[in-house]
Design a binder for these strands. Structure first.
Ligand SMILES: [Mn+2]
Ligand SMILES: [Mn+2]
Ligand SMILES: [Zn+2]
Ligand SMILES: [Zn+2]
Lengths: 136, 136
DNA sequence: ACAGCAATCTGGACTTTGTCTAATATCCGG
DNA sequence: CCGGATATTAGACAAAGTCCAGATTGCTGT
């Protein structure tokens, strides 16, 4: 699949999001790269040519995408949140030195032996993060 | 085991940490409660009676404890880091509504099917977080 | 075309978490 | 007690994120 700006409007609509110029640009930044980006990185990408999207809109839009299930949040770095255009179930490898974050397909990963949840609680998601560094 | 201020000095020494009044208080805050605390919470606990430990010292000390392996860091909340006096291998349940964080013993949890690491990389740790919320 | 209206976007002030620094205080061996 | 190393401190600073009141945009009905 190839993500063009034109596809973005349909993608947004299919997630019940009114497609505006700013939202299309932000979605395009995430989906054309298929990378994990921080709000700051999105901000920089969207405003490379000329300043056209404010910080408030970047944060508002990313939060909206999150609520609508268009992207997922990955919390691995204590100083910033990453936004992930890949919403299929998967896990992450985090290189602590470089900050590089990559996907692990969940298909072949098996997690067993988890205790039962406290009553009245439902699982919202299971995050598995493998923290790695260069062998010293 | 019962963690008193008096055994804190020995605990610190056994981790190659020079026991000072402030360090003992901070260690005592964490180990007597056996809870996951943020820097802010540690700060509040340590200064309840009267102000006696600065913000800089709280942060410096928690970082020192981390380096020396006395505590572990848990990154689940995008807005703050938790410090965990339990350094034995274990996982976490995070209640997203309340922010409550509790331990899952790693003993019976089995994770299989992880892909091989990129060459020259070693695992520093595997964090498994089960995000739960009240059933709606 | 145009007024009215809701939805969206914006700059900038503000808050929170955490870092840094230069000065001071404490500790310890000789 | 002296001198140096180690530890603590207040407060300035930085970065990530939130908030708000005003401006823009894009309709819809006339
Ligand atoms: Mn443009
Ligand atoms: Mn005291
Ligand atoms: Zn991912
Ligand atoms: Zn724990």
């Amino acid at each position: 699949m190839h993500y063009t700006r034109d596809n973005m409007a349909g993608l947004l609509r299919s997630h019940d999001i009114n497609p505006t110029h700013q939202r299309i640009e932000i979605a395009h930044a995430l989906f054309s790269r298929q990378e994990h980006l921080s709000a700051d990185q999105v901000m920089a990408i969207v405003n490379t040519r000329h300043s056209e999207t404010s910080k408030a809109t970047v944060y508002n839009t990313l939060k909206l995408f999150l609520e609508k299930g268009l992207v997922r949040e990955v919390i691995v770095d204590p100083s910033k949140v990453f936004f992930d255009p890949n919403t299929s179930p998967h896990h992450h490898i985090y290189e602590v030195d470089t900050g590089k974050l990559s996907d692990i397909d969940a298909e072949h990963v098996q997690i067993s032996g988890l205790p039962p949840l406290p009553t009245g609680m439902v699982t919202e998601g299971i995050d598995l993060i493998v923290r790695v560094r260069r062998a010293s």
